[in-house]
Design a protein around this nucleic acid. Structure first.
Length: 684
RNA sequence: GGCUAUGUAGCUCAGUUGGUUAGAGCACAGCAUUCAUAAUGCUGGAGUCGCUGGUUCAAGUCCAGCCAUAGCCA
């Protein structure tokens, strides 16, 4: 056997601003399976992670909760650790970016960058909240889009027309903290001179470190011009102050990946068999891999290797991006109850179900993974309970009757050899992170094992005199096959693996054990290894998730500086929050009569309506109902208009109000008022 | 708008460098079996491989355009 590989693996650091949900779990389950597989193969694979604790969002969250940031991140970390443990994620260390080790490495790396001339400074003008005395990141300013006139848009891009711009270009900008009108203020910022690494990055991104599609994607930037990266933020900021730069702090994304080093260093200090330099020095022979979500590729495949390069550390051998989780084919949604927290899941279902299902669907690519809940239940039940566990379950009784020990004979040596041989392909699939392929092959083995037992029908033989040994041989063979399948599933199902060890009376079920055969070996009584999923459990989980979402009061601005890390999946979707009567009373609803309705040139979804709103006044309203209504269907109808909605400039003209409709998606009905009602009548 | 992906049976997905009648699991139907957590085995129906063109003796696979979906644009 070749020399064991020394491998260091990380999952992206969860942000200390919210709970772990099933999206996070995809990444940690993927990483954990890979790490367990490596160790099962006899390699020395270390897995570290940490909470990402810095930044404005954490600072404000703590402030809102009336805590210090330190107290807040400590509580968060405890929660995160508990959730990961619940899902059997075996981080060898789970640390924090708010640690002395991380401060040390952040300062060290920064100092080296600076010494190498890779830090430049220049003064930038930025919006500033004069009430709260804080600089405003793009997402903390809202106003009217300068391109299309849409209201209430973030400072970096318009969600309506997709224009991108600078926050100071917004019309009528407001701070999301205080509502104050921001002022422009100058500040000196520190920049990392990324363009100097263009050549290195071009080569590095194409050297097998990244998935092809990711490398293609990055080529967009690398073939164009890279920009310098702003790595400083002004006080007040929760983070590390930049050496020799009072009032300036490292941007959270500078010290976040350094957290991988800090966590590993912290572990090395407690372990005799791990040495930091062996893994991080420039010419390290150890392997380093980062598992991340596809949303944070830039940070890990551009900024991070460039920083490491300048600071004279080794670069990663691989950055592996995965896609997002959808539930029942759609984005996780709070109101639908599919925004599922790790904690809530664990209160209803066994973590290994999810580990198995994710594994069964994960490939090496960046495609999104759909958690289809009915498929989930069916697949887990039929694969794990119906096929795999059934093999042991149907053989164990006969073995017990025969004395409790496996036969000295191997009934089907060729079949056994084929099962052992299959381990090579399966290992290859795990290694390449093609877990779904590994699972397919394992399930094919389980099918073959069941076919074998079926064809031999030991229950028939057991009724015939003198065939006792044959029964033992066949059922022992079944157990041998089961054991191999359990070995192959071990990285995915560690808790079940432990139960199988107890059943088979063995100490280990590693890939390296697959050549041995338990002939003549005494085994223990079979106990159920896993129970089936009931659909009611899933229904309960969805219900509980809806309650979670409702309980989570969401006043105040959504802290969003870490939007890249938290991204869409964390975006609150309004459920049905209670409102005061006063809130409702603000909406002026009136009956309006459609005078004209027309198609809009160039618009896929819109119809242009001319409405009589009483007192001789008419309004022009654009309504996204083209897919369900023809203009002639609407003319002459009385509809419900939001009379006091702010006019909104759209590409095709100004829309002065909004027509109410029920439904959405496949079904949509415009709300109509009785034809007897006069246009302009108020609705209350 | 530009870019990166995805689109194959009711559902979830495989389909290697283009090569015979396009596969699996689940679900469904029938039969067998009853050792097993009603698990298992056998048989079967089911697909215009998003659409339209093109290259080729041959296209799910290559090329172009279009449509839909998702994401990215620091």
């Amino acid at each position: 056997m070749s020399e064991p590989r020394k491998i260091l693996v990380t999952s992206a650091l969860p942000y200390a601003n919210g709970p772990i949900h099933l999206g996070h779990m995809l990444e940690h389950i993927q990483t954990d399976i890979w790490v367990r597989f490596q160790n099962s193969m006899g390699n020395m694979c270390t897995y570290v992670c940490a909470d990402d604790t810095h930044g404005t969002a954490v600072m404000l969250r703590a402030e809102k909760e009336g805590k210090t940031p330190e107290d807040h991140i400590k509580a968060m970390q405890e929660e995160h650790v508990r959730d990961f443990r619940g899902f059997l994620i075996d981080h060898h260390n789970y640390y924090s970016t708010h640690s002395e080790e991380n401060r040390y490495f952040a300062e060290l790396i920064y100092t080296r960058l600076k010494t190498n001339g890779h830090i430049s400074t220049r003064t930038i003008r930025q919006l500033f909240d004069p009430e709260k005395e804080i600089f405003l990141a793009d997402r903390f300013v809202k106003g009217t889009c300068p391109k299309c006139g849409s209201e209430d848009q973030y400072g970096d891009a318009c969600e309506v027309c997709s224009a991108t711009y600078e926050p100071n270009e917004l019309v009528n900008p407001k701070s999301v903290y205080t509502g104050a009108t921001p002022v422009e203020k100058e500040s000196e910022h520190y920049f990392f001179t990324l363009p100097e690494f263009q050549g290195m990055l071009r080569e590095w991104t194409r050297s097998g470190t990244l998935q092809d599609s990711v490398a293609n994607k990055l080529a967009e930037w690398l073939d164009a011009e890279l920009q310098e990266w702003d790595v400083s933020r002004d006080a007040p900021y929760f983070g590390f102050e930049i050496p020799d730069a009072p009032g300036k702090y490292f941007y959270v994304w500078l010290d976040a990946p350094i957290g991988y080093m800090a966590s590993f260093k912290n572990l090395c200090d407690r372990r005799d068999d791990l040495e930091f330099d062996e893994y991080w020095k420039k010419d390290s022979k150890a392997e380093l891999y980062h598992f991340i979500g596809k949303d944070i590729i830039n940070f890990h495949a551009l900024f991070w290797p460039a920083m490491l390069d300048s600071a004279d550390f080794r670069k990663p051998d691989g950055v592996f991006a995965h896609g997002y989780i959808t539930v029942n084919g759609e984005k996780m949604s709070k109101s639908r109850g599919t925004f599922i927290m790790a904690k809530t899941y664990l209160e209803h279902l066994n973590p290994e179900y999810l580990r198995y299902y994710y594994a069964a669907k994960l490939g090496a690519g960046v495609e999104d993974i759909d958690l289809s809940l009915t498929d989930f239940a069916q697949r887990v039940n039929s694969d794990l309970v119906g096929k795999v566990i059934n093999i042991a379950s149907r053989c164990a009784g006969f073995i017990k009757k025969g004395g409790g020990s496996l036969s000295d004979n191997v009934a089907e040596p060729e079949m056994l050899a084929a099962f052992q041989q299959a381990g090579i392909d399966i290992a290859g699939a795990y290694e390449r992170r093609e877990f779904s392929k590994a699972i397919r092959e394992i399930m094919a083995l389980a099918d073959r094992a069941n076919e074998y037992i079926q064809s031999k029908a030991p229950w028939v033989m057991s009724k015939e005199e003198g065939r006792e040994q044959e029964v033992q041989d066949v059922c022992s063979m079944g157990i041998h096959l089961f054991r191999l399948i359990a070995i192959y599933l071990g990285p995915v199902l560690p808790a079940m693996s432990d139960k199988v060890k107890a059943f088979l009376n063995v100490d280990s079920l590693n890939f390296t054990d697959r050549e041995t055969v338990l002939t003549g070996h005494a085994i223990n009584k079979f106990k159920p290894l896993l129970t089936r999923i009931e659909m009611t459990q899933i229904d309960d989980l969805i219900e509980a998730s809806k309650e979670d979402a409702a309980a989570e009061a969401k006043p105040g601005p959504k802290a969003a500086e870490k939007k890249k890390a938290e991204s869409k999946q964390d975006k609150p979707e309004e459920g049905s929050q209670e409102i005061e009567f006063g809130d409702f009373a603000k909406v002026d609803l009136r009956v309006a009569r459609v005078i004209e309705a027309d198609h809009v040139e160039g618009a896929d979804k819109l119809l242009k309506l001319k409405l009589d709103v009483g007192n001789g006044e008419t309004r022009q309203v654009f309504s996204g109902i083209k897919s369900h209504y023809q203009p002639e269907d609407l003319t002459g109808k009385n509809v419900v208009l939001v009379y006091n909605l702010k006019p909104r400039k759209m590409r095709f003209g100004v829309s002065e109000g909004m027509v109410l409709a029920a439904g959405g998606g496949d079904e949509l009905w415009v709300m109509e008022a009785d034809s007897a009602v006069k246009p302009g009548t108020k609705i209350s």
